[in-house]
């Protein structure tokens, strides 16, 4: 009952907040976290998936598709981050002209 149930990531503070989820295989989803379990299965509401470039699956495009209420399988979840206060920036370590 004690330490076993403790998870490294306390998702309780993200409940009802917007989260971004990256999944193994490269899929990327944002939505409102509605629930989760110990296995890191997530319930997201109003989920939106970012579609990827057909030629380069490593790139996400601006295209999205609405998924609605979804379950993300815990085994596939790689990253969970709040959308609030998070912003994607250009890679600061990238050399300007590939030199």
């Amino acid at each position: 009952m004690s330490g076993r149930k403790e998870t490294v990531l306390d998702l309780a503070k993200f409940v009802d907040k917007g989260v971004q989820v990256k999944l193994t295989g490269g899929r990327q989803v944002t939505g409102t976290l509605k629930g989760y379990d110990q296995l890191l299965n997530l319930v997201l509401d109003e989920a939106v998936e970012f579609l990827r470039d057909a030629d380069d699956p490593l790139k996400t495009t601006d295209q999205t598709r609405q998924l609605g209420l979804i379950v993300c399988r815990g085994t596939a979840v790689m990253l969970v981050s709040p959308t609030d206060g998070t912003d994607e920036i250009a890679n600061p370590f990238m050399q300007p002209d590939g030199a």
Binding site: A12, V15, L23, T24, G25, R27, K34, G35, Y36, D37, N41, L42, V43, E49, L69, V71, G74, A76
Partner: peptide, 26 residues
């Protein structure tokens, strides 16, 4: 700590008998 939240297993359980869309890793 959060009994009101929607558990993934419950959601899927409620889905039994109705349509589901499964998106694979690939």
């Amino acid at each position: 700590h959060n009994p009101s939240q929607l558990l993934p297993s419950e959601l899927i359980d409620r889905c039994i008998g109705s349509k589901i869309w499964v998106i694979m890793k690939g």
